[in-house]
């Protein structure tokens, strides 16, 4: 009998609730994005994010239950992302999940949001064969993760300063685009050729697997300063994104070779970019690697991926008790 689970994610500025039967039958995945609420500040204000989560989480749970046509008594488990992210924001999701699990007498699971990102691929493509190399390009993190089995993973490469997604958002902002900058940059990168422009590819020649994007961000700032506001935005941002995509693909392929892994997955908000997806399809085909990619709506923060990882944890009996806490960092 396949289980029915409810998962919550409030780690950053999106409130998301998902209902999953088994490991793949997604009955509901509702997400409320707060971008507009933070626009006046030009970035996410943690206290505002926390307030918004509490305001919308219960109506969102009700909406998800209605969409999935299930009742609380039908649930078998409850899961919540309890790290990493904004403490105050995570605490809302964690407290709600604990309260639901407690009163319904259900197993509770705290889920690592970053570990969950690649499970968007398990959700859509089914069981993947280990070992796997994951590139997780989420808002605050750009990580290469080597996974040998479920729940057995380690970070083999990470952003040492700005994450790729962060860099894209900030550069888009320099060019006068509102948050989130990813979709705008992606649209321009799809529509334009880089032309004569060529920007740095930080740490590309470095043999390690870490990323650095702050130098590229600064290069864009200087470019804007030197060329003024009348720059040809399309080709410039296309060239900028070509740098980002090349660094990500080259480092991912390098990591796969070094670790002897033949299957690669890409996930996280930046993975929603069609231009990046194209670059990965090309790079992986050339390197003889199998590539798994989730649909764009499962790349950005969502509770569906959290539910999928939770379904695996539930099957393995990996539950948490009611003292489950929130943690800001990737490793608790």
């Amino acid at each position: 009998m396949e289980t029915l689970g409810l998962a919550i994610d409030t780690t950053f500025d999106d409130t998301s609730v998902a209902l999953l039967r088994g490991k793949q039958a997604l009955l509901a995945n509702v997400t409320l994005s707060q971008y507009a609420d933070h626009a006046e500040f030009g970035g996410v204000v943690p206290e505002r994010a926390s307030r918004k989560h509490l305001e919308v989480i219960h109506p969102l749970i009700q909406r998800a239950m209605a969409e999935a046509e299930v009742e609380f008594r039908d649930l078998d488990w409850v899961a919540v992302s309890n790290l990493p992210g904004l403490m105050g924001a995570i605490l809302v999701g964690v407290t709600v999940a604990k309260s639901l699990a407690y009163q319904l007498g259900l197993p509770l699971m705290g889920i690592n949001h970053i570990e969950a990102h690649p499970y968007a691929n398990f959700l859509v493509h089914g069981e993947l064969e280990f070992p796997l190399l994951h590139l997780v390009a989420a808002g605050g993190h750009t990580l290469l993760i080597h996974q040998e089995d479920h729940f057995k993973w380690r970070v083999v490469g990470r952003s040492v300063d700005d994450a790729a997604g962060e860099c894209v958002d900030k550069v888009a902002k320099m060019f006068g685009h509102p948050m989130p900058g990813g979709p705008v940059v992606d649209r321009l990168a799809m529509a334009h050729a880089p032309g004569p422009y060529d920007f740095p590819r930080p740490l590309l020649k470095d043999p390690g697997l870490d990323f650095s994007f702050s130098g590229l961000k600064t290069a864009m700032l200087y470019f804007l300063r030197d060329h003024g506001p009348r720059v040809d935005e399309g080709p410039v941002l296309a060239a900028f994104f070509a740098s980002v995509a090349e660094v990500l693909t080259v480092k991912t392929v390098r990591a796969a070779r070094q670790l002897g892994v033949s299957t690669v997955t890409v996930s996280g908000g930046l993975a929603a970019s069609r231009r990046l997806r194209g670059a990965f399809e090309e790079a992986c085909a050339e390197a003889g690697l199998t590539l798994y990619y989730p649909p764009p709506n499962l790349c950005t923060d969502n509770a569906a991926m959290v539910a999928c990882l939770a379904a695996y944890r539930h099957e393995a009996g990996l539950h948490d008790d009611l003292t489950l806490d929130a943690h800001a960092n990737l490793i608790a």
Binding site: L54, Q62, F72, G88, L91, T95, S99, Q103
Partner: peptide
């Protein structure tokens, strides 16, 4: 306390919703 207030309300609202 902002965070404290939210914890109590998150529990209370979750109980009120289910019960």
């Amino acid at each position: 306390s902002f965070t404290g207030t939210r914890i109590g309300l998150a529990v209370a609202k979750s109980f009120a919703l289910v019960q």
